[in-house]
């Protein structure tokens, strides 16, 4: 847990140090200054003095470090969230470092820069840095806490009656009214724009409507593999919590305001699939975090999770 925090904060600082060192180390080799921006046509359309380039880069990196530190603080007891932030921070730092170094190398010993085309490798390099940096952060941010538990759920956790050898599945669809309203509003806007201003104007709103429509409902399933949630009409994307990570399950109540809105939320040690406020199934996980999904009849679902978890650990 401490390691992912360290990665999330130090990656942007390292990137800032690297780009400042490169800019100042080569300071006397930029006769025309440093290219600071590449336009959409692939030509350099901005130039800065070496000092201000380094200062801006450092400021961006310090800002990133502060942003990721604040986000890390908000999920500090959730190893999965910390790992995600560690990857995101490392990826963003790598992009900034690679972009800045690419601009510096492009500007080396050049007497004119404005209007010249930038080398073709700048964009691929930046994308590779994003992928590589994120993967490195993901790897470094892995949690030291045990992900699995060998213990059956505590005796006081609710169970259902299931005969020996019996099999059971619990499944339920939960509908997100606010998201459905948003999807309808976006669809209406899209249709109105298409009619009044043409298909190109309406398309973005219609795309948003389609994306929201997929997130309008979710099917939540508990079976011997654990808990699975996916959008109502399609199987992917899906969230899955394997049964062997679950310490115990219970019914609880959660409000969207506690978690900062609807959708997949992370706050404190909790990760939630929150489609509405109210009744929710809550799982205590072996790594100390908790997973919530808002769904009706959560008491039955929790009892089945406990029953299946106990059964899996007794044999």
């Amino acid at each position: 847990m401490q390691r992912s925090l360290f990665v999330a904060v130090s990656a942007p600082l390292l990137a800032g140090a690297a780009l400042a060192a490169a800019a100042l180390g080569w300071a006397d080799r930029f006769p025309a200054g440093v290219a600071s921006h590449i336009g959409p046509d692939g030509r350099i359309d901005g130039v800065a003095a070496t000092g201000s380039f380094a200062a801006t880069g450092l400021a961006v990196c310090a800002g990133l470090a502060l942003l990721w530190a604040l986000l890390v603080r908000s999920v500090r007891r959730n190893p999965a969230g910390l790992r995600l932030l560690s990857a995101a921070s490392s990826g963003s730092a790598a992009v900034v470092a690679a972009g800045a170094v690419a601009l510096l190398v492009t500007s080396l010993d050049r007497t004119d820069l404005l209007g010249r085309s930038a080398p073709g490798w700048v964009l691929p390099l930046t994308l590779a840095a994003l992928a590589g940096g994120s993967a490195l952060g993901w790897f470094l941010g892995r949690s030291p806490a045990p992900a699995r538990t060998p213990q059956p759920p505590p005796a006081e956790a609710p169970r259902i009656d299931l005969p020996v050898g019996g099999r059971a599945v619990w499944t339920r669809v939960v509908v997100a009214v606010p998201i459905a309203v948003g999807a309808l509003a976006a669809a209406g806007l899209g249709v109105a724009l298409t009619v009044t201003a043409g298909a190109a104007a309406g398309a973005p709103a219609l795309l948003v409507a389609a994306a929201l429509a997929v997130g309008t409902s979710a099917r939540v399933t508990v079976d011997a593999t654990g808990l699975t949630a996916h959008p109502g009409p399609v199987r992917r994307p899906r969230l899955h919590v394997p049964l062997d990570r679950v310490v115990s399950a219970r019914r609880t109540d959660v409000r969207a305001t506690e978690m900062g809105g609807w959708g997949v939320r992370m706050r404190g040690e909790r990760t939630a699939l929150l489609l509405r406020s109210g009744e929710a199934l809550e799982l205590d996980l072996a790594d100390g975090s908790r997973f919530l999904v808002t769904v009706d009849d959560a008491a039955t679902a929790a009892a089945l999770v406990n029953t299946l978890a106990e059964r899996a650990r007794r044999c």
């Binding site: 259902i160 299931l162 005969p163 019996g166 099999r167 059971a168 599945v169 619990w170 499944t171 039955t300």
Partner: peptide
């Protein structure tokens, strides 16, 4: 909805 089956039944 809980769907429980018992193969021994």
């Amino acid at each position: 909805m809980l769907i429980a089956i018992d193969p021994a039944s």
